[in-house]
Amino acid sequence: MSERPLLRVTNLTKHFPVRGGGRRVVHAVDDVTFHIDRGTTFGLVGESGCGKSSCARTIIRIYDPTSGSVELDGQEIAACPARELMPMRRRMQMIFQDPYASLNARMTVRDIIAEPLNAHFAALSRAQADEMIFAMLEKVGLTREHANRYAHEFSGGQRQRVGIARALILRPDLVICDEPISALDVSIQAQIVNMLRDFQQELGLTYLFIAHDLSMVRYVSDHVGVMYLGQLVEMCAADEIYSHPLHPYTQGLLQSIPIPDPRLARLKTASGLEGDLPSPIDPPAGCRFHTRCPYAMAVCALEQPPLCEAAPGHCVACHLHTPRNCDAKSVSIE
């Protein structure tokens, strides 16, 4: 595609120092490279602790990256000084996982949604702000009568609607959805997902969608990236990753999903994943997955496989699939 992607993340790395651990660090995000085209959704999946949330928070500069670059519409965010960051922040907003913890219990819904408006448009009068807030509330399926209530008066699904209103009131380009539905009941999840999809079409939003529910990620995403211990191990079109997963980790994850059909569930023979995620403080040498991989070879414990294009538009970091002449730096999905 010739158009410039909205978000380009290049070699992004975030290490957290370990308290009392000398020079030891938690390898939360390690050398992650991907991009998201305007108006599309990139899904990021992996087990808890794999670094998907850290990655999102580093992109939006809640955390300062250790190294690497993040470009929003061509503008560098990763090295941007704090005061220049403000106008960029208007263009990227976040929807959080827990609608109970992410809304201030002592603020009314109006004030919660007004806060980003006031921060970015100080000149706005109260009447103007109210008008925008009421319109936004209606868009997310609430009414203006809800504006003077407090978060505790709402159900989980309604709270998440408030969280979405807060994120969208600034008309951002990029919305980072960090597990936006995993705290909600099944019947409510579909409501929220449909709403996010409608907003994407209407406002041309670009989503970075983080979740551990793989069927939901496939459903909402155009492209999917799979993370393991801070690294991107596989990345391709959403349907492709489910129909032709290449990385043994992705295959294991997919086999672990419970099948909501008892007859198919009984036929399931595949084995899923064994063991737990190793510590991100001392990630295994070589391929980080080799300690749990059913196909591990001698080379896997020694050499880290580069992320290579194994099939058109399908990148994977695995020695089973590394083409002979792979140049890791040239990889990108178009």
Partner: peptide
């Protein structure tokens, strides 16, 4: 039926919208 319709299966047709159960408990 509503519950079964509101979960996307791994083979869900992506063009189709999910059918949520409207309202709340």
């Amino acid at each position: 039926r509503g519950l079964l319709n509101s979960i996307p299966s791994i083979t869900q047709d992506k063009a189709r919208r999910l059918t949520p159960i409207a309202g709340s408990p």
